[in-house]
Amino acid sequence: MSTETTTEVLAVSRTIDAPVGTVFGVLADPAHHAAIDGTGWVREPLEPAAALTEVGQIFGMGMYHANHPDGDYRMHNRVEVLDPPRSIAWQPGQYGPDGEIGYGGWSWRYDLAEEGAGACRATLTYDWSAVPAFLRDHIAFPPFGEDHLTRSLDNLAALAEGAR
């Protein structure tokens, strides 16, 4: 496992004993996101499971966090990068009272590279560099430690290796 931390980006990498396409397939299915998540905050997809297939696609997830004002809440993620089977990224947001989705300025990205026969190197990056000051006044970034990303990649590996 290797890690990299800069001021506003946290990244963790590991080898997964599954082909790149298999790992990408797990990531592109929101039904797997709760099982991948290393914090336990992600609960379930809000819509019937549909594979992520295009940039701009929105997918909703039911969430829970004890420190969130509502406990249970919903996030609506916009796919920002989709380069099968190499990269996938999304930016979480929430619907406001005006019916529009507002984004907080943080993103999740997975980059996959072949590493030997039937294995890949997966890098998970959490980037909060675009979070505006008013949100930083209310939320400490990052809101979790590097161990969250490590657990997420371990969970992803277990799912992908089991799917081979």
Rank of each mutant, 00 (worst) to 15 (best):
G40E: 07
A51C: 14
L46C: 03
A31C: 12
G56V: 02
H33W: 15
V26E: 01
G40Y: 10
V26R: 00
V20W: 01
A35Y: 06
T39Y: 07
H32L: 02
T15F: 05
D29G: 11
L27D: 01
M63Q: 09
H68G: 01
P45H: 04
D29E: 13
A50P: 02
G25K: 01
T15Y: 05
Y64L: 12
V20K: 05
G25D: 04
V20C: 09
I36E: 00
D29M: 12
H68A: 07
E47T: 10
T39I: 09
I36F: 08
R43Q: 15
I58F: 06
H32D: 04
A49S: 11
Y64G: 05
D70W: 10
D70C: 03
F59W: 07
H32V: 03
A31G: 13
M61A: 09
A34L: 11
D17V: 14
A28F: 12
G71P: 05
A31Q: 11
T22Y: 03
P19D: 05
T22C: 04
G56D: 08
V26M: 02
A34N: 06
R43C: 07
V42Y: 01
A35G: 11
L27G: 02
H68M: 13
G21D: 15
F24L: 03
V20E: 03
V23L: 03
F24N: 01
L46E: 00
A51V: 11
P48W: 04
I16N: 01
E47W: 04
P19S: 08
L27I: 07
T22E: 03
A18N: 01
M63T: 02
A34I: 07
F24V: 02
A34C: 13
G62R: 15
Y64T: 03
A50Q: 15
Y64D: 06
E44A: 15
D37A: 05
V55K: 07
N67F: 13
Q57I: 06
V42F: 02
Q57S: 12
F59I: 02
D70K: 14
A34K: 04
V42I: 13
T53C: 13
A66C: 12
G40S: 10
P69W: 09
W41V: 13
G62V: 03
L52S: 03
V26C: 04
D29H: 08
M63W: 04
A18D: 01
P48L: 10
T15D: 11
P69D: 05
H32N: 15
I58M: 07
G71N: 08
G56N: 04
M61F: 12
A34E: 05
M63K: 07
G38T: 04
T53K: 13
A28R: 07
P30Q: 06
G62L: 11
E47R: 08
H65W: 14
D17A: 15
G21Y: 06
L46G: 09
T39K: 10
G38V: 00
L46M: 08
Y64N: 10
G56F: 10
E44Y: 10
R43K: 15
A51Y: 08
G21V: 11
M61N: 04
A66W: 14
G38W: 00
V55G: 09
L27A: 01
H32R: 07
Q57V: 02
I16P: 00
P19H: 06
V26F: 03
G62N: 15
I58W: 07
P45K: 02
G40T: 10
D72E: 14
H68N: 14
H68E: 14
H32K: 06
G56C: 11
D72K: 13
N67T: 14
P69I: 03
I36P: 00
V23S: 00
A51M: 13
